[in-house]
Design a protein around this nucleic acid. Structure first.
Length: 261
DNA sequence: ATGGCCAACCCCGTTGGA
């Protein structure tokens, strides 16, 4: 079973590329971020025509997350618990039944946190809420995948120019500490389970010829519970999608989980 | 050495992203 995440930077602008990529990669479950449209405006039909069920949590102009799944949804829950006043559409969770039992998947769009300090406290609070949520879900001992745009550079090897990011919300010590704390709960970084190599980027800024110069960041991640990590057979980054016409600044990241007994 | 993009929105500039 293939589970992927992709920050599409507007699902309406990216619809043709999304359809092409779904046809090529044929993932079973896809977590989308930055859909940037209200639920009524989400382009359901061309995605459903490819055999996907669609769960969405959008808002006007900004943010917006979704989950696409070939398997039907048993449950869908928008919003990360822990702050009723948080009205950003940054989280949606779904449960599906697989041949090997239930799987729980969350699509996560973690706050950027810049500029520091004005917007940074919201990011740290959001990460603390994510830690609480993950702790609670891990107690269920289910296959669980927390996939999305974390806006976290986990380590120096995850940036082309790490020294340029030392005072940035994506790379500050408090950000990296919370990401480490997530992994220390027992979550596995799917890409890092297969390779410790540098240069495995998932984002290249539109500006300054970053793509052409391969100046990128690894900020999109799939974190797996032990029950999912036990079934992990492969993970990858669809870097070639960044070279397509009118691309998102992020590319899809995926992992393959064995579901047969 | 420097600057270099893109998307949404009600409007043709401003805000947000990373």
């Amino acid at each position: 079973m293939l589970i992927a995440t992709w920050n599409v930077n507007s699902v309406k602008q990216r619809l043709d590329l999304l359809v092409s990529w779904l046809q090529d990669r044929r993932p079973d479950i896809v977590c989308l971020q930055e859909t940037k449209c209200v639920d009524d405006a989400f382009p359901r039909e061309p995605i459903e025509a490819l055999g996907y069920n669609v769960a969405i949590h959008g808002q006007k102009t900004f943010n917006g997350v979704a989950i696409l799944s070939r398997l039907p949804f048993d449950e869908v829950t928008p919003r990360l618990p822990g702050d009723h006043a948080d009205d950003h559409a940054r989280f949606i969770e779904a449960v599906v039944s697989t041949p090997a039992g239930v799987a729980r998947v969350a699509s996560i769009y973690l706050p950027n946190g810049n500029p520091v300090p004005d917007k940074y406290s919201y990011k740290l609070k959001w990460m603390d809420r994510l830690l609480d949520y993950a702790r609670e879900r891990l107690a269920l001992e289910e296959p669980l995948v927390l996939a999305g745009d974390y806006n976290v550079i986990p380590a120096a090897q995850d940036a082309a120019n790490p020294e340029a990011w030392t005072r940035d919300a994506l790379f500050l010590p408090a950000t990296r500490e919370r990401f480490s704390a997530l992994k220390n709960l027992g979550l596995t970084d799917a890409v890092r389970a297969g390779s410790e190599a540098g240069g495995l980027y998932t984002f290249w800024d539109y500006q300054a010829g970053c793509w052409q110069r391969n100046v990128g960041l690894r900020i999109d991640h799939l974190l797996l519970s032990p029950q999912a990590a036990d079934r992990l057979t492969a993970a990858g980054i669809d870097k070639h999608v960044r070279g397509w016409d009118k691309p998102s600044d992020h590319v899809p990241v995926w992992c393959a989980l064995r579901v047969e007994e």
